[in-house]
Simulated assay, not measured.
Amino acid sequence: MATVNPNMISIEHVTKNFGDFKALDGVDLHVRKGEFLVLLGASGCGKSTLLNLIAGFERPSSGRVVVNGRPVTDVDPHCGMVFQQYALFPWMTVLDNVAFGLKMKGMAAKARRAAAMRYVEMVGLKDFASAYPKALSGGMRQRVSIARVLANDPDVILLDEPFAALDAMTRQVLQEELLQIYEKSGKTIVFITHSIDEALMLSTRMIIMGARPGRVVCDIDNDLPLPRDAAVQLSPRFNELKSAIWNTVQAEVMKSLGTPAGH
């Protein structure tokens, strides 16, 4: 009887060089279907490079990346990417931005507008469906970016510090909304952040990346109960996990700066 591979993403012995610079060194990482994986680590540790390899924007120097059983050899349509910089079409309305991928797939106009509207409503922007990006706040634009990715129904959603440019209150609202979307959709998510609080709020599992060249130094299951909201930060377990993660991240930051830990 055939066995089903539980891994949605497999990163196998991956090294990535940019000329003489080694960004990643022998990374092995498996992400199970339906996980919300957060990548943490110092600047320059290869988090974004790893995300770009999964998406197919970059190719490994050695090793391979597999998404849902398919080796990644080019930009992978089965992965949807949400960037920090929104990347919306300014001449399109919210609804048309969300429907764009469906149009490229050849879906009929009526069907794609109906499908897009479902995701516009899911991210709380029904009243702004006819608005243009310039009329939206940063948080609203990022909701459109997330809705556009969801509408394309990818196997994997990749998010590269999507809330970093937002104010603290908007960031918290979008974190809670993203968790609700994750729980409803069951999608596999890989999310980059520099914030330990954000990682603990969102993840089911956290990977701490080491100082360059990038490698996995710590793999932590997040056992904080779901569903979560901001109140989870008051729990003793939250602070216990945060302290342990901070100690590891701090040690790697010190290595990247060439400073002994504790100095």
Rank of each mutant, 00 (worst) to 15 (best):
V4E: 14
V4G: 04
N7P: 15
M8W: 12
I9G: 00
I11W: 05
T15V: 07
K16C: 06
K16V: 12
N17T: 03
A23S: 03
L24T: 11
G26Q: 09
V27R: 10
V27L: 13
D28E: 09
L29Y: 01
H30E: 14
V31F: 13
F36Q: 13
F36V: 13
L37K: 13
L39G: 04
L40V: 10
G41K: 13
A42K: 06
G44F: 12
L50D: 14
L50V: 14
L51V: 12
N52T: 06
R64D: 14
G69D: 06
D76T: 07
C79R: 13
G80R: 10
G80H: 11
V82A: 05
F83H: 10
Y86L: 03
L88G: 00
D96L: 04
N97G: 02
K103R: 15
M107G: 00
K110R: 13
K110Q: 07
K110P: 03
A111H: 08
A111L: 05
R112Q: 14
R112W: 14
A116V: 02
R118S: 08
V120I: 07
M122A: 15
D127G: 06
F128N: 04
P133D: 00
S137H: 03
G139M: 08
M140E: 11
Q142N: 12
R143P: 11
S145W: 01
V149R: 03
L150M: 15
A151N: 06
N152F: 03
D153G: 06
D153V: 03
P154V: 08
D155Y: 07
D160S: 08
A165R: 02
L174W: 01
Q175S: 10
Q175E: 11
L178N: 09
L179E: 05
I181L: 15
Y182M: 03
E183V: 04
E183H: 10
K184M: 10
G186I: 08
T188V: 03
T193W: 02
S195D: 13
A199N: 12
M201V: 00
S203Q: 13
S203P: 05
P213I: 07
P213D: 08
R215Q: 14
R215V: 03
N222Y: 10
D223L: 10
D229V: 02
A230M: 08
L234W: 02
R237V: 00
E240N: 02
S243D: 12
S243E: 08
I245P: 05
N247E: 14
S256N: 10
L257R: 07
